[in-house]
């Protein structure tokens, strides 16, 4: 009995400290209605789970084969074939990245922490937007509450200030991934397009029209992938203000934060691909550029488009 009391008290003490930290990568307790987007839009939700899988897998492969890829075209073809299999048969659950990409997770600890936190924001915003609630006040209030929780975590939040594309493309290793693996890069940009297009669809006030728009976006995503690289006609990474103007106007901070997330994904791809980044520098460069994505000042846009 005495032991039980001590264990319970210690657990409460631990929990009391966690509540005050505001630095956890664990969103606990989960917001009401978390992970319910999939109830309304199962196909879109499973694709989002598959994207996480696909991102982690490509990073793991790039890390494992770093400096040993003699035929990039062949490597890209094989990787694309593997990822397309996953996209066509996407997971029903959110796979833990550590279970499928342990080297990547180990080598990019801050980046993974920051992505995890940001992906939860993505997910919970979609969860709210999939509900049949009033678009003008109730939805805005709920999303704002989630965004406040997200921003409360100073250790892991991404900047919600607009950055220029130079943040993604202005470094000694930049564009390496897209030059070496152009089709795969377009696949990743198609992921990004799909994610932000969903927000725009869900801004629609009429429920039936909303469902139809999501359906059309899923179909358009498959069209983008139908004949890579020709089928995805992106000259640049899709930006939220262009793909989701209504959403960006309503939630400018979240839109900027998503773009910073997407740019950071591309930066990681470039760090892993570029021969200019020495193997022993990968970890420190991962941390350095993630800190840049978190800080408001580096590469700040003079004028935010939204």
């Amino acid at each position: 009995m005495k032991t039980f009391v001590i264990i319970v008290t210690l657990s409460l003490l631990f929990l009391s400290t966690l509540g005050k930290t505001f630095a956890a990568v664990v969103w606990y307790p989960l917001p009401e209605g978390a992970y319910t987007f999939g109830n309304q839009y199962p196909e879109a939700q499973r694709l989002l789970f598959a994207f996480d899988y696909g991102h982690a897998l490509v990073y793991e492969k790039l890390l494992a084969h770093r400096g040993k890829i003699n035929d990039p075209e062949k490597f890209e073809k094989e990787l694309l074939a593997n990822i397309l299999k996953i996209l066509k048969n996407p997971p029903q659950v959110k796979v833990d990245e550590e279970d499928i990409a342990p080297e990547y997770v180990f080598n990019f600890p801050l980046t993974v922490n920051v992505f995890d936190w940001s992906h939860m924001l993505h997910q919970f915003v979609l969860d709210v937007m999939s509900k049949p609630i009033d678009r003008d006040s109730e939805m805005v209030t709920q999303i704002q509450r989630i965004n406040d929780q997200y921003n409360g975590n100073q250790a892991l939040r991404l900047s919600d200030v607009c950055k220029t594309m130079l943040f993604m493309d202005g470094h000694y290793f930049s564009k390496s991934f897209r030059r070496t693996f152009p089709s795969f890069n377009l696949l990743i940009w198609s992921y990004h397009w799909f994610q932000i297009k969903l927000y725009e669809d869900l801004m629609e006030k009429d429920g039936k029209k909303r469902d139809l728009l999501v359906e059309q976006t899923v179909a358009a995503f498959w069209q983008l992938l139908s004949d890579l690289p020709d089928s995805a006609d992106f000259d640049m990474m899709p930006e939220t203000f262009k793909v989701a103007p209504k959403f960006s106007k309503q939630f400018p901070g979240i839109a900027a934060s998503f773009d910073n997330n997407h740019m950071l994904h591309d930066i990681v791809s470039d760090i892993l691909t570029s021969e200019r980044v020495a193997a022993e520098k990968i970890k420190s460069e991962g941390i350095r550029f993630t800190r840049m994505a978190q800080a408001p000042n580096p590469f700040i846009a003079v004028r935010c488009p939204f």
Partner: peptide, 10 residues
């Protein structure tokens, strides 16, 4: 662990 969440995941 840049969030210092542990030893037990809450």
């Amino acid at each position: 662990d840049f969030s210092c969440t542990g030893p037990i995941n809450p």
